[in-house]
Design a protein around this nucleic acid. Sequence first.
DNA 1: TTGAAAGCGATACCAA
DNA 2: TTGGTATCGCTTTCAA
Lengths: 344, 344
Amino acid sequence: MVQIPNTPPSASPGPRSVPTSADVARLAGVSRATVSYVLNNTSTVRISEPTRRRVLDAARELGYVPHAAARSLRAGHSRMVLMPSPAAPLGPLYGRFVSELQWALGRLDYTVVQYGTTAARGDEAARAWAELRPVAVLVPGTELGPQGVSLLRRSGARAVVTLGPACVDGAHALLMDQAAVGHAAAAHLYARGRRRIGVVVPRDPALETFSRPRLDGARDALRGTGAEITELPLAWTEEDAARLAARWTGLGLDAVFTYDDEYAMLLMRALQDTGVRIPEDTAVIGADDLMLGRLLRPRLSTVRVELPSGADLAALVDRAVRNPGAAPETHRVLGARVVRREST
Amino acid sequence: MVQIPNTPPSASPGPRSVPTSADVARLAGVSRATVSYVLNNTSTVRISEPTRRRVLDAARELGYVPHAAARSLRAGHSRMVLMPSPAAPLGPLYGRFVSELQWALGRLDYTVVQYGTTAARGDEAARAWAELRPVAVLVPGTELGPQGVSLLRRSGARAVVTLGPACVDGAHALLMDQAAVGHAAAAHLYARGRRRIGVVVPRDPALETFSRPRLDGARDALRGTGAEITELPLAWTEEDAARLAARWTGLGLDAVFTYDDEYAMLLMRALQDTGVRIPEDTAVIGADDLMLGRLLRPRLSTVRVELPSGADLAALVDRAVRNPGAAPETHRVLGARVVRREST
DNA sequence: TTGAAAGCGATACCAA
DNA sequence: TTGGTATCGCTTTCAA
């Protein structure tokens, strides 16, 4: 803070300010251009070995670290792939997916950055993302509208990919339609002869983007069959589960789709504690195929969700970045397969 | 749409390039300075209302979005708080903690960015983070050494905070010593009269940073008591759990600390399937106080982990940023409290 | 009230 | 093989 760069050295102590390539150049006795050549291994230019050494030593001595903002400003582009991070943690499946994706994009030399969601919502948020001038943006959920997409594209994003239930104009889409999960669950229960089917809908508003389509998918599967769907709001507490279980007999349901395996465990416990037999009285099916389902007794039937591999999505992103003019691709990527165990 | 900024009009078609403040200025018929004044509501300068309007209209019409890199390059600093994202998802507790933290820092007008960890490890990674010139860096785990800290500080980070088991020279530390968890668990089992205590250690290498200290803490709690600890490696599969359960009687253990509640569930199921009675033959205690523990039968005793609130950490970061010269603070923040239920 | 211009740090062209 | 220099987009003095 005391010593100003680009001025002759002074003996003043205190925290030195951040070294720049000019400082390296000065210490090595060469020009900034040469420093740049050496540190970037520029192939169009050959630097003599002694000079190389002097530059590298100087850089090391100063602890020089290039300034990413300056570099990408000059370059006019970066390799940053931006993903807004979800407002609430979305479970192990999503976490694993993101990890895998990060790794795969890293292999392709992109830098993945999860942007901490601020209060901004929708196109407001898109503006904040656009300020970072990412080369690609991956947006889970339905926050992003067509104007958001066009804003991002106008700001230089060469690929905008939505991961969610619906396409958005101008963006690539990985269609992950949670309705397929509900559909599979309900169809399975129907095939097992069940006709009065409950569907658990978590009260947690953060889960609504998942729970609503899962419910709708279940409805859809049974349309016109004469089977009936009953919506069952359920908070993530033992008390609420006990309340629901207490009025279970009155509901007259012979099956229930519990949104996911964790809610299945919550409800199953409450039902078993009140003497409901599974699957005799009521069949139960969860979703996500978590380990815990296999550990329940009876073993939990579930809907296994198949997400695309991180490598696949990384490849899509890379393709889009290389060829930004191409028409947006739309892929249906959410597979839903029933895994029948003992609870249905 | 066809015209390229900063060059004489040409008829060449193709994707328009990103509008800059110069474009806004030109369209509004004012200078770039004026644009900057208007868009930043600069208070030291008064701009006439008509001019203001013209600038705002022009910006809207062009879909102008400021360039964060250029801005922070000029300003010499940013408000980015960088957190490396863990290589593997770390469970619901950590996820909730990060969410909360993001929100709290957002309230203080920081931008939280989770940096996708590439192959780089340790001080190599610190370099990559330093390139972004974040105002603060929050590093979970033990990846960061003293040299990494000093590199980051030299690169302008005004606060470096480690979240992990140990202090690092020069950095603020939120000491989250997982050993306390193991310690609490073992002490509890001992107090309940158990003397031959198994400790499950997940084989998953990603969990080692947690599992090792939890084991060590348990060892520590029993040192000199005559009670014995047996390390039990366990993979996250039913098969491995069954294998372990099969040789259970031979092990002669009267209690087990299972690393966390999920491993507790896995092992409990395998033990119950082979006829081991819980807690009569073997007491079981998990950790993290997940919902699933309450749903098991017998209800699972557990060690509840108390993390600092996101707001507290955000306040620490803000304090450190405002006063970067201050001595690093070290806080012991991981509380471990046994919640006894029915399995011990 | 507005504009001209100097940089922030890094890179790549053109000369030497 | 190396150096000078214009440039990326933005902010902020200083002058007008």
